[in-house]
Amino acid sequence: MPAPFFIVKQLPVLPPSFYSADDVDFILPRVLELTFTSNTMAPFARGMGHVGAPFAWDVARRALLRAELDAWYARAYGLDRRQLEYVLDPHDVMGADYPSQTFRVLRKNEMATFGEYRTRRLVLAAYDRQEVAALRPVS
């Protein structure tokens, strides 16, 4: 049974009318590359207009694409850089003794694997690039 419309309107989701053609041109190829990594997704890829082979699973490339999307959506939801820093790691903004954490497991795993919280660095760098390029999501 579909949710009553008043519930849908209360969800923190950007409506389809928010997205311009430029927004779709930014989002669609990144989503396609992140999702079409197997022939089992070929019908989805064809539906998005892609006629090539599945994308190679490249860990570094996928991290960059996710970071670009994360930064784009942070801006679309109106977060400034400081707010995004807080979302990624409240300790960076509030201090080491702040009692809350976000993405604790992700940070721990990336520190062990990469010696840094790579997602934080990539997302903030993507955010900065998008600000300089003045990509649209600033409502």
Results as ranks from 00 to 15, higher is better:
58 D>K: 06
56 A>Y: 04
35 T>Q: 03
54 P>H: 03
23 D>F: 00
51 V>G: 10
72 W>H: 10
66 R>I: 06
41 M>C: 00
81 R>L: 15
101 Q>V: 10
27 I>Y: 02
71 A>F: 09
8 V>R: 12
20 S>K: 02
100 S>D: 13
6 F>P: 14
82 R>Q: 15
135 L>K: 05
120 R>V: 07
93 V>P: 04
10 Q>H: 09
128 D>S: 08
80 D>P: 06
4 P>R: 11
49 G>A: 03
53 A>G: 01
94 M>G: 07
24 V>L: 08
99 P>R: 06
91 H>L: 14
123 V>D: 09
73 Y>S: 12
50 H>P: 00
17 S>T: 07
128 D>M: 05
139 S>R: 09
134 A>F: 01
133 A>L: 10
123 V>C: 10
111 M>L: 15
36 F>G: 01
135 L>S: 02
75 R>V: 07
59 V>T: 10
48 M>L: 09
74 A>I: 02
108 K>P: 01
109 N>S: 14
30 R>I: 01
96 A>W: 07
111 M>P: 06
70 D>A: 15
105 V>G: 04
51 V>I: 03
81 R>Q: 15
21 A>T: 10
73 Y>F: 15
54 P>R: 01
130 Q>S: 04
46 R>G: 00
76 A>Y: 09
72 W>A: 03
113 T>V: 09
3 A>Q: 13
41 M>V: 00
74 A>K: 09
55 F>Y: 10
50 H>S: 02
15 P>C: 02
60 A>Q: 09
7 I>N: 08
83 Q>T: 10
90 P>H: 07
119 T>P: 08
107 R>F: 04
86 Y>Q: 11
113 T>N: 12
2 P>G: 11
96 A>D: 15
99 P>W: 12
1 M>S: 15
116 E>T: 14
33 E>Q: 06
57 W>Q: 09
109 N>I: 13
139 S>E: 09
25 D>H: 02
128 D>F: 05
123 V>I: 15
72 W>Q: 07
116 E>D: 13
4 P>V: 14
59 V>A: 12
109 N>W: 08
108 K>E: 13
117 Y>C: 03
108 K>Y: 12
74 A>H: 08
127 Y>S: 06
14 L>S: 04
40 T>C: 00
8 V>T: 14
1 M>A: 15
123 V>N: 05
11 L>N: 08
2 P>N: 14
79 L>D: 07
49 G>D: 06
24 V>Y: 02
76 A>E: 14
124 L>R: 08
93 V>N: 10
105 V>I: 14
25 D>Y: 00
115 G>L: 13
50 H>M: 00
122 L>W: 01
134 A>M: 03
123 V>L: 08
87 V>L: 15
82 R>A: 13
54 P>L: 02
116 E>W: 05
104 R>W: 10
12 P>C: 05
63 A>Y: 12
